[in-house]
Design a protein around this nucleic acid. Structure first.
Lengths: 239, 239
DNA sequence: CGGGTTGCTTGACACAGGTCAAGGCCCGAC
DNA sequence: GTCGGGCCTTGACCTGTGTCAAGCAACCCG
């Protein structure tokens, strides 16, 4: 029938599409994807809504369909340390599946987002039947380990300027006409880089004085990508 | 027969014993353990021997039988950041199993050690047949994730004094007669805390001046554990 | 025994970056 | 319009910690 399928089917095929796009499930068979889609729950989040808090018992793991989710910890004094900002197609909280302890961090939407929740029980069940899925989960988690290890040396082996240069280079590919559009406020970027908005402001100013970039509002223009990369490499060499 | 078994058997049952002790394999059936022991390779390391270097293709994952292994990264400038020191019974480099990329860090024995190598291929094969083993691996990796997350806020949310207090409290249970015996040199401890030996020395000195602890050689005596814990809590509250 | 090595301690100093405070800019509400 | 509140920027200041350097104690070895 060329007629449009029932709403539920539309939703389901849409879901399967999203699942297939995400790295975690990219090569799975259609049947397996259907099984997963069957128990997936969709949740919409407004900006600043919390998805979960540290210590809460784990519902399952998550997959960002759209928007961005900030996973972070807060110290006893209320200071926030960003672990990672997950964007569309990325999965997180796999760690919560395998251990009885609660979430080790908090998750909050930095903009309006929709996430897919993969509940613990049926997913574990499926993993029991599909060893290759287990391997994928292992792979995904080891990816997260690498990200964390990367953060570690970001925080210990590099200064703010270097971290910013690194961020610029990483995001230069997303530049439209050499201009990077900031996803959120500068304060958010500062947090993502593990610094304060004041220091970020100063550092941007310094780069601007050196004619490497120019900043106007939420738009950062890289004048000379090669020079930025050279400066990054030089900073990495010294520390 | 009450007579002693052949050397190979002795070695095998010894291996199985070690495997059973380690958290990763603690509840496995005797058969599975025998299979694993069958492909396990033992390696002895002298102090300062490298087990592997960053970027090398992964042989498999590792299990410390005795001694201690320092997993760390080094910056372009040669500075070393300790990720974790693994001691007997602990496993590491599980991440290397699931991804084709090489090791993300270096591993070096901090004292004479013996490690068991679990080669990639047969272990992955076994995981394919034993979904519960896959779940264990997931659990172990999520443990490592938590350790890394813990390190993150150690490094960002706490100063050296707080990190030292935390270390003291964590290791106070291992104190014999209130005295903690340092595993290695003070420089090693400093590296583990992510600081320099000078700063560690000063910080220890400050705690000693406050009569909280006393230090003599490689022995640290905690005079008043409750006071140390109180100070730790207070530091955490402020930051 | 003296000389070298190694590790620990202490002092002096420099610097990155966090915090506080004040001023400027933009924008939406009224 | 103009009032108010975010956000950004800039300046002034302070503190923690890394680094360099010198002195000291312990130990090994010929």
């Amino acid at each position: 029938m060329p007629a449009s399928p029932r709403p539920a089917d539309v939703k389901l095929t849409g879901l399967i599409g999203t699942l297939r796009c995400c790295q975690l499930f990219s090569g799975l068979s259609a049947e397996d994807l259907a099984v997963i889609a069957g128990f997936t729950v969709m949740q919409k989040l407004a900006k600043d809504d919390y998805l979960f808090h540290e210590g809460e018992p784990a519902r399952g793991c998550y997959l960002v369909q759209s928007g961005a989710v900030n996973v972070h910890r807060v110290s006893a004094a209320g200071k926030e340390q960003v672990i990672h900002v997950f964007r569309s197609g990325e999965s997180f909280a796999e760690a919560a599946l395998a251990t009885p302890t609660g979430y080790p961090a908090n998750a909050r939407a930095v903009e309006p987002s929709t996430v897919l929740i993969l509940p613990k029980a049926p997913l574990l069940d499926l993993i029991g039947h599909r060893p290759d899925l287990a391997l994928r989960m292992l792979g995904s988690m080891s990816g997260h380990l690498r990200v964390l290890v990367g953060m570690l040396d970001d925080l210990t082996l590099k200064d703010v300027e270097t971290r910013l240069l690194n961020w610029l280079v990483k995001h230069s590919h997303a530049a439209r006409g050499g201009a990077i559009q900031l996803p959120g406020t500068k304060r958010v970027l500062a947090a993502e880089l593990g610094t304060s908005s004041e220091t970020l402001s100063r550092t941007l100013g310094r780069l601007r004085d050196q004619r490497l970039i120019s900043v106007s509002g939420k738009k950062i223009t890289i004048h000379n990508l090669a020079a930025v990369q050279a400066m990054l490499r030089r900073n990495l060499g010294e520390n």
